[in-house]
Write a protein that binds this DNA or RNA. Structure first.
Lengths: 256, 256
DNA sequence: TAAAATTTGAGTCATTTTGACTCAAAACTA
DNA sequence: TAGTTTTGAGTCAAAATGACTCAAATTTTA
């Protein structure tokens, strides 16, 4: 069991930059809450919750590695992303996860222990995707990715919980400058939906009439029809004027 | 000549994370312009202009490596810094600098060529320092660091010019949220001095009376006396209320 | 030595933006 | 049909903004 993984890891390592990894905080918006894609690694009865990530191949651009990793987990290409942090403490390895587990203790051979003790520097990206367009894919040695709401996030392995926190911080900071939301919503949406998204990113409530006034004045969205609705009074439908973005460009300024 | 360098590099490499480097964009403010610290590597008659940088040792935190590099070039500790980008294209090496130079072509042995062809992923930090407190130090194999104004920057080696540009972009974005300036100015300064700094970061002029009004309303600075002056009407002296910062915390909000 | 020029500090004012509201319309509920 | 919920539209006082003018303090120059 461990042998198989170890052989796989070692074969990948040969073509990759050693001790360097990419981790992706893939964020989507669902039921009025930000969600993040988390993978579960199962080794016998031990389960590690980790962010999607991996090595960077020698002949692969860093960004291409990131896009490959996002595609592996979500199937999506041409996503909006941002490099927001690098985690690189000297003590940064899976060693703690390894040694605190009895299963690892008993069954592990030296090779696995070595790999789990290896120091990694991780370049972290956040990726914003349309929740409704995703079909999560199990990847090799991962028994299924899943969406978890970021605010009620369980403990992830190593420092991956910190990475998610840092990603949300970064998103919140970027918010006032960019039409970020266009990548987290379906192409057609209502103002209340957009407001719920902005509120969940900023982490605070916004007065509804004021939100409407401000967001419309930026000129970043256009009304494209009515209705769709389900409950109560039908809401107007809007779309971002320039569609989805794949890079963060300062175009509009607004602050809440 | 090359042998000596090669032996040095190889000895460092053994204790360091391979193919990973840290580069620092050390910024200071002088004569109404942002300046950046640049090192000159001389190998025979070939001169490379590069940003201060280096390896990360296996037992060294990433941030500690960055601080070590800044200290090597400027002598300063406890500086304000920010990780702002990672440069990691697959083609990223000094190979071009190597092959385009006749001196390298004729004299180089295989070891040097190999090192210069090695792909590096560089984690980039910007560091904000008080220009007046710096004494630039020559480091090993570097014949002297120097301050260069960022807007009339000559071509640096590899992609280091792009790194500087990216750093300035990042600084401009951070500006409205943080008392950044406190680390780029002497502890006592006049409002016109502060304004010149802010203008050089934002890259545009600001109305003087309006600047005064806004900056005072944030409450981040206090008047601590008069005069010092040199020319014309003496200006009031100010200091940042909470001194210098070593981390970027959102405390004040203002936008120009 | 007085007038001019330069730099800094202080103030005005119309316009815009903001934040906290109310109110009505359109649907569903019961 | 009355009540509830959700969305869209509007009001209004206070604050912020941008474009100004003007006076004070100093040096320059004539």
């Amino acid at each position: 069991m461990f042998d198989k993984i170890l052989r796989y890891v070692e074969s990948v390592e040969k073509e990759a930059i050693p001790q360097l990894s990419v981790n992706c905080v893939i964020l989507g918006f669902h039921e009025k809450a930000l969600h993040v894609v988390v993978n579960r690694i199962s080794l016998d009865s031990v389960h590690l919750m980790v962010l999607p990530g991996g090595y960077v191949y020698q002949k692969e651009d860093l960004v291409v590695a990131m896009e490959r990793i996002v595609k592996e987990s979500t199937g999506l290409e041409k996503i909006l992303f941002k490099q927001f942090a690098v985690f690189g403490k000297a003590s940064r390895s899976f060693n703690r996860e390894f040694t605190k587990s009895r299963v690892f203790k008993s069954k592990a051979d030296k090779g696995v222990l070595d790999w789990f003790s290896k120091r990694f520097v991780s370049v972290c990206y956040l990726a914003l995707v349309d929740y409704s367009k995703i079909e999560l894919r199990p990847t090799q040695f991962m028994d299924g990715a899943q969406w978890l709401p970021v605010n009620k996030l369980k403990e992830l392995a190593m420092d991956h919980s910190d990475i998610v926190k840092s990603a949300c911080e970064s998103l919140r900071k970027e918010m006032p400058y960019t039409p970020i939301a266009s990548n987290l919503l379906p192409s057609k949406f209502t103002l209340p939906e957009l407001q719920a998204l902005v509120e969940s990113i900023l982490g605070r409530q916004i007065d509804r009439p004021n939100f409407r006034r401000k967001i419309l004045k930026t000129g970043m969205i256009t009304k494209i029809g009515s209705d769709t609705s389900n409950k109560r009074r039908p809401a107007d439908l809007y779309a971002f004027k320039h569609g989805r973005k794949t890079s963060l460009i300062e175009e509009y300024r607004f602050g809440f």
